[in-house]
Every structure is written in structure tokens, then in C-alpha cells.
Simulated assay, not measured.
Amino acid sequence: MNAVGLVAGVWYPSVRQTVAAAVACGDVRAKTATELGYTELPVSVDVAPPDMAVRAARPVLDRGRVPAGDLAMVLHASVHHQGHDAWSAPHYIAHQLAADRAVPIGLLQQCNGGAIGIELAIDRLRGDPRSGPVLVTTADRFLTPSWHRWLTDYGMATGDGATAVLVHRGDRPSDLLLHASATTVAADLEVMHRGDDGLDAHPLGHGPQIDVKRTKRAFIAAYGVDRFIKTAYDRISEAVATALAEAGLSRSDLRYAVLPRLGTKAMAEAYVPPLVEQVDADLLDLGRATGHLGAGDLNANLADLGRGDWLGPGDHALVLNGGGGFTFTAMVVSRPDSPSSTARGAFR
């Protein structure tokens, strides 16, 4: 595909829980904290996820010089509770932004929701030449009693935050240019988050606190951990190879390969091996002070790449992500010559 323009931002609450504080209060054991490798986690005490998304989105629209009324769609991805029941968080976000003509859509793609949102945005631009830009937001907040940010799942601890990515045709200011995106699927792995459970009639019907560890133990007892590791290896390898080929790049053309914001041990087991088999780039881990951001890891990594100094003009990076269900996405992006420049061969 021709290059697509991206403007990306992230919003975090000011409150932080350090690893030392979490260990001291018994939220996590010291050994587990070491395996996770985080330094601290952002905690949203009084801002709900959709309001976090609005806070992330406003400066992104300003930098992209896009009035909210010009947006064609607002796609919002999340993992956990958004603040109300039987209610549409995407419509709320569009309302708060005054995106009155945008079609609001919610995405339940687990931890890969933000990446899938960007791909859907590209499909909209490709399929409708009259379409305006698309805004993709993510936001999650992980509070007890329904979710324990340190204990609910293996291989990660969750931080609170929101992301916003403006996807446009490359004819507006851009933090990054997106050259390729590839997603692979392993739908049989949905059982990792279901285990032996039946499908209950009510929210939290299997217990007052979400316990992904329990369902993963059931998966491992039935199938063994090697089934996930092998499937992830194959699907990640395919996604990376496809994205590189679509971008017209070789394994040596990348400056960085950016990892999801999972625990360091989990990434070393499942994500790093297939990645280093496919690319020669330095691995970049941007999540040690944020934790895993629910649906927003890839989008937060785009924001950090776009606003940081890792990439020089023309440098390319591959950004990798995965999410329960499972899907795996690899995107190839580059730094434009300047934030105000438009893409040569911009998407039309």
C-alpha cells in the first residue's frame, strides 16, 4: 500500500505505583516483579477510560490540523470496563470531541484492539475516496475489585492510560508514515482466556475478580504451554515477513523492532525468538514505566516513536503486537522528512 500518515499521542495519569511500593504492600512478590521487569505503573484514580481517550485525542487532532467535524470514524478499543453498562463509550468520545459526523465503533479485540483499529481505518480510506481521516483511540483502567493490575494475568502487569492515533491519507502533518501492516490469526487460542468455563449469563459470573491465570492454567493442563509458544512463533513470523515484503524492505533495513509492553520474561519466551529470526534491528522496549496498556500497547509505541528521537528522517521501524483470541500484528513505519511534510506517493 502507499504510505498512510499517522499522528499519535498517549495520555497517562499522574499517579504512579512503583514496583518497590507494590512489593512492600504485598501486591506482587519480589521474584514476580523481577520477571516482569517494570519500574512503575500509572494508576488512574479519578479519570474514567473514555475521558482519558478524549484527553489523548485532542492534541492529536490539533497536531494533525483536523477539525473533529471532519473525522469519518471514531474507533475505540478497550479491554476492561469503560465506566458504564449498556452504553457506548465510542459515541461518548465522539460527542466530547464534537466529532458529529464520525461513525463511532467499539472494538473488542483484547490487547490487539488498537492495532486492528488502525487497519480498519486504512480499509475505510482505501474503500471510500471521499472519506475524511479516522481517529483510533484506546483506553483502559484496571482497578480492584474486578481487576488486580499485578495478579490478574501471567506475564504482565497492567497500567492505566489512553492512546489516540489519527490515520489520514498522508497529505497532512504526520508524526510517522505507515508503509505496511500485516495481521495473522490463531482463533483456536481463544480457549486460553476461557479455560474449562462455560459461557455464563452475567458479567463476572465466574468470580468477583477476573482471573486470567485460572483459565490459562486450564489451557496448559489440556494442551501444554508449547502449543501457545509454537503457534505464536509461527503467526508472528508470518506477520513480520508479510509486513516487510509489503513495505518492500529486507531484514536489514530496519532501525528498530519495537516490542509489546508485556513482562520481560513473557516477551523473551514468545515474542523475541520469532522476531530476531526475521529482522536484524535493535529491539526497543518502551513499556518498562507504563506496564501493559490493555488495547493500547502498539498505539502507545507509535506515539513514542513519533514524538521521540529514536528514528531519524527516513529511518524505518517494525512495531509488533499481539492480543488474546489471538491476533498478531506487525506494522512498518518511518519518520517523515519533517512533521509537516506529506508522503511521496501518499495514499489516495
Rank of each mutant, 00 (worst) to 15 (best):
R235N: 10
L262V: 02
I220P: 00
R130G: 12
D196V: 07
R169D: 13
G170T: 04
V167T: 07
D196K: 09
P274M: 07
R261M: 15
D197N: 14
G205F: 03
S174Q: 13
R251V: 03
D188I: 00
F219M: 04
G248K: 07
K265R: 15
D160V: 12
S146K: 10
A247E: 08
L259W: 09
V272C: 09
T144E: 15
I229S: 12
A218Y: 01
P273F: 02
T242M: 09
V191P: 00
H193V: 12
T138W: 04
L143T: 13
P208S: 14
I210A: 13
M192K: 12
A180V: 06
G248F: 07
T152L: 01
V167E: 10
K213N: 12
T264G: 05
L262C: 11
G161I: 07
P133G: 10
G195C: 05
W150A: 07
E269Q: 15
A239W: 02
A270E: 08
G198P: 05
K216E: 14
A218C: 07
I236Q: 13
A218F: 00
G155H: 06
T215N: 02
M267V: 01
A157M: 08
Y256V: 13
A218H: 11
T231C: 11
R235T: 14
L204M: 14
L151N: 12
I236N: 11
V225C: 06
A243G: 10
E246I: 04
S237F: 04
T138Y: 04
S131R: 03
F142H: 15
H202K: 12
Q209A: 15
R214P: 03
